[in-house]
């Protein structure tokens, strides 16, 4: 598992709808806030890149010092963004694909309004389990 990882789901309107600090490293107080900054800034790059490819997985698109941002864009233009320091691209890809499945299940819930915050604790535990498995 990566020592630092921050996973976020950003809605098509650029609002974060899910966030999770996944790293095994000890949490620093301002780390979460810095991660948000990095991911938020990489949205600029995603915005350009997303239209240049038909693949959903955009691979590592941005970096900050030794942290890499990998992005996966769903058909509905919801962006899964992962900030990580591991170099395991295959793992990241698998992680994204599985999270995408989970996300679709959330979308299928008639009580979930697309673009609203994902508060499901089940989703959260599943994502964390996937992170342990793949990252």
């Amino acid at each position: 598992m990566a020592s630092t990882a921050c996973f976020m789901i950003v809605s098509r309107t650029d609002i974060p709808i899910y966030e999770a600090e996944l790293g095994s490293a000890l949490k620093k107080e301002d780390a979460a806030q810095q991660h948000q900054f990095i991911l938020h800034a990489s949205l600029d790059i995603v915005q350009d890149l997303a239209w240049t490819t038909s693949a959903m997985f955009l691979k590592a698109i941005d970096r900050f010092n030794d942290l890499v941002v990998s992005v996966y864009v769903t058909a509905g233009h919801t962006r899964f963004m992962l900030l990580h320091d591991s170099r395991n691209e295959d793992g990241v890809k698998c992680f994204f694909q599985e999270v995408h499945e989970l996300y679709i299940k959330i979308l299928l819930n008639p009580l979930y309004l697309p673009g609203s915050r994902i508060a499901s604790s089940h989703f959260d535990t599943k994502v964390r389990a996937l992170a342990r498995k793949y990252l």
């Binding site: 900054f37 938020h40 800034a41 990489s42 600029d44 790059i45």
Partner: peptide
Amino acid sequence: CYLFSVPQMLRKYGFHLI
């Protein structure tokens, strides 16, 4: 630089300002 780039990258601009 991010601000002047085309297209504008406002988020990067903001981040680097911070």
